[in-house]
Nucleic acid binder design. Structure first.
Lengths: 195, 195
DNA sequence: ATATTCAAACAGAACGGTCTGTACAAATAA
DNA sequence: TTATTTGTACAGACCGTTCTGTTTGAATAT
C-alpha cells in the first residue's frame, strides 16, 4: 500500500463520510477501508473516534469559512445585498447534489451536542465562525443602503443565519429546496430598503 | 411490579428520553429500566426500536399540534400577529428549562433523516402538520392588516417556521435563548405592516 | 359456581453481530 | 541498535433482537 496517509487527507475523507452517515452510523473500520488505512495507523494518528470527529469539525469549519469569504467577495461588481442573497441561494441549490444532507455541523450538533460536551463546544465554535464571516458583508450592504443601517448588523446576520439554517433543515426534511429558496427570497425582499 | 405498562405511558417516557439523548445514544435497556418494563414486554408491545421511535414521533406531533392550536387560539383579545409572536417567543423561553434540547423532530431528522427512510417520512409529516396548524393564524393576521395580505400565507408561514427552527437550533448550540428571541422579534418587526 | 382451555402479556437469559480500542509483532526509519 | 510506525488479531463491552418458559385473566365448558 503506497498511499500517503497524512492526517489532512484522512480527515477529508472521514469528514465526507461523517457528512453522509453521521457519527454513530460510521465505524472506524469503514473509515479505514475507504482511506486504505489500518487500525494501527488510525489510532497512531488519532487519539479516539471522538477526537477524529472534532478534528473533522475543525476542518469543515475552516473550509466553510473560506468558502463563505470567497463567495461573498467574488462578483464585487454586484451589490453586497445581492451577493448575500446569491450565497444563500447557492447553498440551497446544491442540496439535491449532496442528497439533502443539510449542514454537517447542525447534524452533529443534533446527534451528539446534548450528550458529548467536547463535540458540542467544537460545533458551537464552528457556528459562530460562520456568522462572523458573514457579518462584514451585511455591514457593506448597510453602507450601500440596501439593508437598514439602523439595525445592528450582528442582529441582521443572526436573522439571515437562523432563517437559512431553518430553511436548510426544511429542505432536507421535505427533499425539496425550491420552497426553501422561496423562503430566503421572501426574507431578503422584506429586509431590503424600499427606494 | 404492579405498574401498568400501557403503550401510551411507555411512549411518553420513551419520547422524553429520546428528546434528551437522541436515538442512537438511547438503548432499549435504558427505556426498560426507566419504565420498569422488561425486554419481553417491550418487544411484545413494539415491533422494533425503530417502530417505537416512529410511534413516539407521532405522539410528539399530536401533542405539539394541540399545543400550537391551543396557544394560538388563547388570548383572542390580542391580535393574531401578537399571538403568533408570543407563541414563538414562549417556545424559545422554555429552552433553558429543557436543557436547550431544541426540537425533537429537528433532532431526529438530523440524526436519522438521511439514513432511515421511514423515520424521515414520519418526521417530515410532523413538520408539515406544524406548519398547517400555524397557517390559519397567519391568514387571520393578514385580515387584521398586520401582515401583508399580498403575500401567500403559506409562504409567510414557511418563513416564520424556518426562522424559528433556525433560531431554536442556534439557541441550542449557544445555550442562549436571548439572541434567538431577538431574532424572532426582528423578523416580526420587519414583516409587520407599517401603519 | 367451578374447572378447563387458551391466547396474550410478560420475564429475563441468551444470541449474534458490531463496535471501539488495545496488544503485540513485524516493518521501517533514525 | 533504538525508536517509531504499521498490520492484524482480538479483547471486551454493548446493543437490538429472539427464544423459551411462565403468568395471567378472560372465555368457555362442565
Amino acid at each position: 500500500m503506497n498511499v500517503k496517509h497524512n492526517k489532512e487527507n484522512v480527515l477529508k475523507t472521514g469528514l465526507d463520510l461523517f457528512c453522509h452517515k453521521g457519527f454513530n452510523s460510521l465505524g472506524i473500520d469503514e473509515i479505514c477501508k475507504v482511506t486504505g488505512m489500518t487500525k494501527g495507523a488510525f489510532y497512531n494518528a488519532f487519539k479516539s473516534k471522538e477526537q477524529f470527529l472534532i478534528e473533522a469539525i475543525v476542518l469543515y469549519a475552516k473550509n466553510n469559512v473560506n468558502r463563505i469569504k470567497t463567495q461573498l467577495q467574488a462578483n464585487k461588481k454586484d451589490t453586497a445585498y445581492n451577493r448575500l442573497l446569491q450565497f444563500y441561494i447557492s447553498m440551497l441549490e446544491v442540496q439535491p447534489k449532496v442528497n439533502f444532507m443539510g449542514c454537517f455541523i447542525n447534524n452533529i450538533m443534533s446527534e451528539l451536542g446534548a450528550t458529548n460536551e467536547n463535540v458540542g463546544i467544537a460545533a458551537t465554535k464552528a457556528f459562530d465562525e460562520f456568522i462572523e464571516a458573514i457579518e462584514p458583508t451585511v455591514k457593506e450592504a448597510q453602507r450601500e443602503n440596501e439593508l437598514d443601517a439602523n439595525i445592528n448588523a450582528r442582529q441582521i446576520t443572526e436573522l439571515l443565519h437562523s432563517t437559512f439554517y431553518g430553511a436548510l433543515t426544511r429542505a432536507k426534511s421535505s427533499k425539496d429546496h425550491q420552497q426553501s429558496i422561496h423562503t430566503m427570497n421572501l426574507l431578503f425582499n422584506n429586509l431590503k430598503i424600499k427606494p
